[in-house]
Design a protein around this nucleic acid. Structure first.
Length: 490
RNA sequence: CGGGGUGUAGCGUAGUCCGGUCAGCGCGCCUGGUUUGGGACCAGGAGGUCGCAAGUUCGAAUCUUGCCACCCCGACCA
């Protein structure tokens, strides 16, 4: 199975597609816009889930599960929310099939029409706030800090594996608070968790910021996000955290008695990351040889490949390999010993490179004699031979080093591709090159939309950590107090 | 949803204009043997309602119509 992928320079999006399919992460399914996540891809997602889940729980959140279906009437209760999602909702109208009169298959039974149509959730705010109404009477019932791991459906026109699919997996946190301050604090706390996860586990540097009103979540007062830069210079929104104010509490009439005995509406947040993170992971680090996975999320961290001539040599090598495997496992490092005799070593080397396994060990007769082993790292493709007795320690350190190196590489790339511009001409030039553009913006939706129309660039975020700076809008010339980040985005 | 393109074995493709010895090739797959420090080699073998459905015709991968899927570009979006 000679699996070739097209190079990034030749065709970036083809490279991405090739990679997803050939590294066995996912494939298109029989259902338009929906993907099958294959075991290797799902294993990465499970690692993402496990870590995030731990971080959520460490900050006081608990998991629960709400229904896939949402009564249509719930949707119309929050005006901007409906408006935002109406165009991409799948709707269930019937609950029964019957045999077709012509004998060819089954048809919808028209007599089984639902009294009220059900929406397949594109997000769960409405069903959750309808539920919270029954749970909250007093400030003593607050806060509610719930997360759910679920699938959602958004009927997208154009889909791409992981980046945009009609059905996707995600987590959505939905919290309820007694005060605005507390809810805002929660919104920012979760944004910080996302950023920490992206940087420390995925190895992807992210910009934390706030969305412009135009890019805000439907129904939110404020949307915060983390934005990552991909190797082709396009931005990718990797996570969002919303301060919902009292919008949903008002829409679903969720009130509580505060300590002064006065009725008030509850304050809300919601926050989520999805399988889109897989797309970010792939595009941030991988190269023309295939995936490059950060050790902390790699399903297999180390692969051992035996090199041998004849069965008796394999025996010697196998003993040593199993020994090393056991030692690595003891250290909590995941290992695969690949002794398939149906493929040659060179084939396996290429295969594990394609799959992004961070460290590869090659062990042969020559090594047994010299008490050495060959260690190859995926991120730099460097190979070294180390004494076999040191290999476990060596690998433990190396995995950390790879994790760091991957992040550093991505960080340097972002630095190199983030540019401050002050004139419209500079802006036009910069946007063609790709990357993040820090420019002044007059704060109006009209300007934002005009820029989008002219350049396809959108405001990715208004960075949280960049300070006040007097300047003039790059497009309109009107005065501005802060630079914002523009980019073309996924 | 609009514009463009593609659909032939698991994958990549030739053939389609000009209907009839056109169902071929490469990779992969299976069996046996030799191999094994960067994608092995030899020999033999299996596998296809030519995307689906109607139609034209003595005859359709090839012509007509409709549908479906995928890719690229736009509008939408995590």
């Amino acid at each position: 199975m000679a699996k070739e992928i097209v190079s990034r320079s030749e065709n970036y999006s083809q490279w991405y597609n090739d990679l997803v399919v050939k590294a066995d992460l996912a494939e298109n399914s029989a259902v338009r816009g929906c993907m099958v996540i294959k075991p290797y891809g799902y294993a990465i997602w499970e690692k993402i889930q496990a870590q995030l889940d731990k971080m959520f729980k460490d900050t006081g959140h608990v998991n629960a599960y709400f229904p896939l279906f949402i009564p249509k009437s719930f949707f119309s209760k929050e005006a901007s929310h409906v408006e935002g999602f109406a165009k991409e909702c799948a709707v269930v109208t019937h609950y029964r099939l019957k045999n077709s009169p012509d004998g060819k298959g089954v048809i919808v039974d028209e007599t089984a029409k639902l009294e009220e149509e059900l929406i397949v959730r594109p997000t769960s705010e409405t069903i959750i706030w309808n539920t919270y109404k029954g749970w909250i009477q007093s400030y003593r019932d607050l806060p509610i800090l719930i997360n759910q791991w679920a699938n959602v459906v958004r009927w997208e026109m154009r889909t791409r594996l992981f980046l945009r699919t009609a059905e996707f997996l995600w987590q959505e946190g939905h919290t309820a608070h007694a005060t605005s301050e507390e809810a805002i604090e929660e919104t920012k706390k979760m944004l910080d968790i996302y950023a920490e996860f992206a940087e420390n586990y995925m190895g992807i540097p992210v910009l934390k910021g706030r969305k412009s009103p135009n890019e805000r979540f439907a129904g939110a007062i404020d949307t915060y996000c983390i934005e990552a830069l991909m190797q082709d210079g396009k931005a990718l929104q990797a996570g969002t955290s919303h301060f919902l104010g009292q919008n949903f509490a008002k829409a679903f009439d969720v009130k509580f008695l505060n300590q002064e005995g006065k009725l008030d509406f509850v304050w809300a947040t919601s926050w989520g990351v999805s399988t889109r993170l897989m797309g970010a992971l792939i595009m941030a680090h991988s190269d023309d040889n295939g995936l490059v996975l950060p050790p902390k999320l790699a399903p297999i961290q180390v692969v051992i490949i035996p090199i041998y001539k004849g069965k008796e040599q394999l025996g010697d090598v196998a003993v040593k390999a199993e020994e090393i495997k056991k030692e690595l496992l003891k250290r909590g490092i995941s290992v695969k010993y690949d002794d398939r005799d149906t493929h040659k070593p060179g084939f396996k080397f290429a295969e594990y490179e394609l799959k992004g396994v961070p460290v590869r060990l090659a062990l042969g007769q020559r090594d047994i004699e010299n008490n050495t082993i060959e260690v190859a790292r995926r991120d730099t493709l460097e190979k070294v031979t180390v004494p076999i007795n040191d290999v476990v320690n060596y690998i433990a350190t190396l995995l950390d080093e790879i994790q760091e190196n991957i992040y550093k590489k991505a960080f340097d790339f972002r630095q190199k591709n983030t540019i401050e511009v002050n004139t419209w001409d500079q802006f036009l030039e910069a946007i063609e090159k790709g990357g993040f553009i820090a420019a002044h913006w007059d704060g109006t939706t009209e300007t934002e939309e005009k820029i989008k129309e002219l350049t396809k660039a959108t405001i990715r975020c208004i960075p949280l950590d960049s300070g006040f700076e007097k300047g003039n809008c790059v497009y309109s010339g009107k005065s501005s107090d802060q630079r914002v980040i523009f980019a073309r985005a996924y």
